[in-house]
């Protein structure tokens, strides 16, 4: 590969917002260099107002940079060819409340040039994928937040894009929905799609992202693969099934001491479930007939 084409790439991307009344300029994004390879799941992390949404909007061509460049599959974001290959789920999406679920997907499908039987088939497929069967005939104004998020995902995928931008996809969604979205992202990854998503819920990012970039005050402060970033090189965790009796614990400590691991560096503990895991396990059990 002589010149790899990145799914998304930014070079020195900078966005400033002038505050007209205060004679001050807010730097929303400062000289961002980012490369996302095709097939990657890339997480943008950071507190509110750190530049995640600005980055996505710049990559989508919704706003224009003051400096630098954004590229989608090597094309400018204004290029219709580039837009054909991307899907976007905005933060807290609102759609036309007067349209039903089906009509919403039809509308966005037609905007992407889909028509007729092909569009109908695609809509059926997506409705199944995001489990919105009960929302097909209902107007969107009666949707719950989770349903809106799911119809949002469906419209983002209507034209089967290669690159998906998901802005806070799990904000305001219950853990179930959130887990579904996580599964969906993993499924997309398996299909070879690229996903760029932003979140401030770190646990979720951890579960799906290949690589992350952490933002603060408009700057990218850290970037790398999760394996690299999260592996504690100074320790190793060993897990065994069942409860550890005192006798076996002493035996183990002795064995470890023979290998030179002694003192405060050796720790024994019971692994804990995360609350999410507990919640999901309980609710799923209830749902079983």
């Amino acid at each position: 590969m002589d010149s790899p084409v990145f799914a998304a790439e930014t070079l020195g991307l900078t966005k400033r917002y002038p505050l007209a009344w205060k004679r001050r300029v807010v730097v929303a994004l400062n000289k961002l260099d980012l490369q996302v390879r095709p097939g990657e799941v890339f997480g943008l992390l950071g507190p509110n107002g750190s530049g995640k949404s600005t980055t996505i909007k710049l990559l989508l061509g919704l706003i224009r940079p003051n400096e630098g460049e954004a590229r989608i599959f090597g094309l400018g974001p204004d290029d219709l060819e580039a837009r054909r290959r991307i899907g976007f789920l905005p933060e807290n999406p609102y759609f036309y409340g007067f349209l039903t679920g089906d009509e919403t997907l039809q509308f966005f499908g037609k905007l992407c040039g889909l028509r007729g039987a092909k569009l109908t088939a695609r809509i059926n497929e997506l409705i199944d994928l995001v489990s919105l069967q009960n929302g097909r005939e209902r107007p969107l104004r009666s949707y719950s937040k989770g349903m809106l998020q799911r119809i949002g995902l469906a419209q983002a995928m209507i034209h089967d894009p290669d690159l998906l931008f998901l802005d806070e996809p799990t904000a305001g969604v219950d853990p179930q929905g959130s887990a579904q979205i996580r599964d969906l992202i993993l499924r997309l990854k398996k299909m070879g799609k690229t996903v760029i998503f932003s979140s401030h819920l770190l646990e979720q990012v951890q579960e799906v992202a290949d690589r992350v970039a952490i933002f603060s005050l408009g700057r990218k402060v850290l970037e790398g693969s999760l394996d690299d970033l999260l592996t504690e090189k100074e320790a190793t965790l060993v897990s065994v099934p069942g409860e550890l009796t005192d006798a076996r614990r002493d035996e183990l400590e002795r064995l470890l001491a023979q290998s030179g691991f002694t003192g405060a560096n050796v720790q024994f503990s019971r692994p804990r479930l995360s609350l999410e895991q507990l919640y999901l396990r309980t609710v799923e059990a209830e749902r079983q007939p």
Binding site: E67, E69, R71
Partner: peptide, 8 residues
């Protein structure tokens, strides 16, 4: 896409 300062 080029950087935009002011669209003169």
């Amino acid at each position: 896409m080029t950087a935009v300062r002011f669209p003169w």
